[in-house]
Design a binder for these strands. Sequence first.
DNA 1: CACCCATACCGAAGGTCGTTCGGCCTGCTG
DNA 2: CAGCAGGCCGAACGACCTTCGGTATGGGTG
Lengths: 153, 153
Amino acid sequence: MDHIDRALLARLQQDATQSYATLGQAVGLSAGAAHERVRKLRERGAIRRTTIEVDPAAVGSAVLAYVMVESSSWMGDSAPAFAALPEVLEAHVIAGSASVLVKVRTATTEQLQDVLRRIYAIDGVSGTQATVVLETFFERPLSPQESGADGHL
Amino acid sequence: MDHIDRALLARLQQDATQSYATLGQAVGLSAGAAHERVRKLRERGAIRRTTIEVDPAAVGSAVLAYVMVESSSWMGDSAPAFAALPEVLEAHVIAGSASVLVKVRTATTEQLQDVLRRIYAIDGVSGTQATVVLETFFERPLSPQESGADGHL
DNA sequence: CACCCATACCGAAGGTCGTTCGGCCTGCTG
DNA sequence: CAGCAGGCCGAACGACCTTCGGTATGGGTG
């Protein structure tokens, strides 16, 4: 994982459809060498998958909210319960007064209310505190930064 | 934007490297027709771009936190100030006691503190409240769901 | 210091896939 | 009923992915 790998990751994040010839030229490598590096990045799991970025509004998810979930018991094994709700895009165990933080997208605020109802139904959940997003400034992928945990890789 | 388009979006989210022949077969179309549909989805902006999903740990961003930013003034024009911080992955204007909610990834908690310091330096910011993630259950793309705001499309 | 092995790169070849095109069919519209 | 627009199919051309042999470089070892 050197600076060339990071450059490859950054360029593929911007556009994963470009050819390996273009990609290699951008980092000073041949197409074959660039392909080999990307293949290894996939193999190691540094690249999890190639995907598309979908406009939420285009698929009818105009409402975005973050929900702090309070609980009366240990929530460490509740991942499947949250994953069962398709409107829940992220779920994290957090440090602080709440126990779990989830990101939710729905078409309407009525649907958001319904999601909150289903979150309440999860075992151990004692309360929720929803924060509705009024305007999204930006959402972007993380930029491969310097140093990092190269460690023994 | 019918059910076939939604199926195409869902399949491309899972794997954007598959061939148009495979894609078309999965939804009952020829390769050419599938290609034409995907082309139009890009044209309309429903597909924003094709990208890769990078493992945060692989690029040295092991610490994830959400930060509630309080302000003493209107923050509606502060998008560039937050975008200037590369560790800030998302920034949203929210309804509630705080003004802006941002998502931050760093390599260490020391770097997180430094990001908080730089957020404080943004004009109008009067306080922050960071919530550190202990464990991420999951992060996934939104699933193209039913009905939605098809409207006049 | 010489040797050897592993790693990474280049350049070319073959096979697959993306992209485009003409033709057909269905469903509207005037 | 005629005309038209939109969507799909199937084929063909060209570009690209993928692999392979050959070569150079750096590190470890006797």
